[in-house]
Simulated scan of single mutants.
Amino acid sequence: MITLKNYARNKGWQGDTVGMMTAVSMNSLHIHSTGIEGEQIVVLSTTGIANALRAGGSVGYGLHQEVVREVGTINAGIITSATLSGAAMVETHMIATEARAAVFPQLVIKGAVSDGIATGTGTDSTLVVSGQRSTAVCFTGKHTEFAEQVARLTMASIADSLTSTECAA
């Protein structure tokens, strides 16, 4: 947090700032977007899967005594012009997390320390940014078109990033 705070201050940025850290190449950045009922949804992702893991699977590390040696993170940012309620922001985060996990079986990505299909990495991060437009969105569960688009965009962005030449190695 101190690193990001100092970075923002050095850049002269005012107000609230959000940052996501990664050790993967920014060449893995992929952006997908769409419009829905006059509002925009944009998904940005960077990917690295050297430490891919399966939720509930073997991790190969102790509580906090050992340092993770392999780096790899999937960062996904979901940005919309619509004004999301608190509940909608939580649901959007959940949808994006499920969408990320859905990409791993499609690409047959196995965990680094187990044979099972991975569901993410040990350091994945998801950010949801709500707009301040007049369209208020109260809920974004799987039964909504908003969630459908967030999931599709998230899956496409992450899949494209994972299959790019930079990430294939």
Rank of each mutant, 00 (worst) to 15 (best):
V67I: 14
A101C: 09
H32R: 01
L84R: 02
L44N: 00
G57N: 04
S114F: 09
S81C: 13
G86Q: 10
V71H: 01
T80E: 02
L63I: 12
E70L: 05
I117H: 05
L107I: 11
M26D: 02
N27M: 07
A101N: 12
V42Y: 06
G19L: 13
V24G: 02
L63M: 07
S45M: 07
E37M: 08
A87P: 03
I36K: 14
V90H: 06
G57W: 01
S45N: 12
A88Y: 06
G48D: 03
I109L: 15
E91W: 04
Q40E: 15
I109T: 07
L107K: 11
S85V: 01
V108T: 11
G86R: 10
V68N: 08
I78V: 15
R54F: 02
M26S: 08
Q65R: 13
S85T: 05
M26R: 03
G72N: 02
T83F: 11
E66Y: 01
A87F: 04
A52E: 09
S33Q: 15
Q106D: 10
V113C: 12
A102S: 15
A87Q: 11
A52M: 05
A99C: 13
S114N: 08
I78M: 07
H30R: 15
I31G: 04
V103P: 14
G38T: 09
A101M: 11
A55D: 10
M21E: 05
M20W: 01
I95Y: 04
G62K: 14
V18S: 03
T46P: 00
A76P: 00
A99W: 06
T73V: 05
I31Y: 04
S25D: 00
T73G: 04
G72H: 01
A76Q: 11
V103R: 13
L53S: 04
L53T: 11
R54K: 15
G86T: 09
H64M: 05
I49G: 02
E37I: 05
N75S: 08
T73Q: 10
A96M: 06
L29P: 06
V68P: 01
A50E: 00
N51G: 07
E91D: 11
N51R: 12
V59A: 08
K110E: 07
T92E: 07
K110A: 12
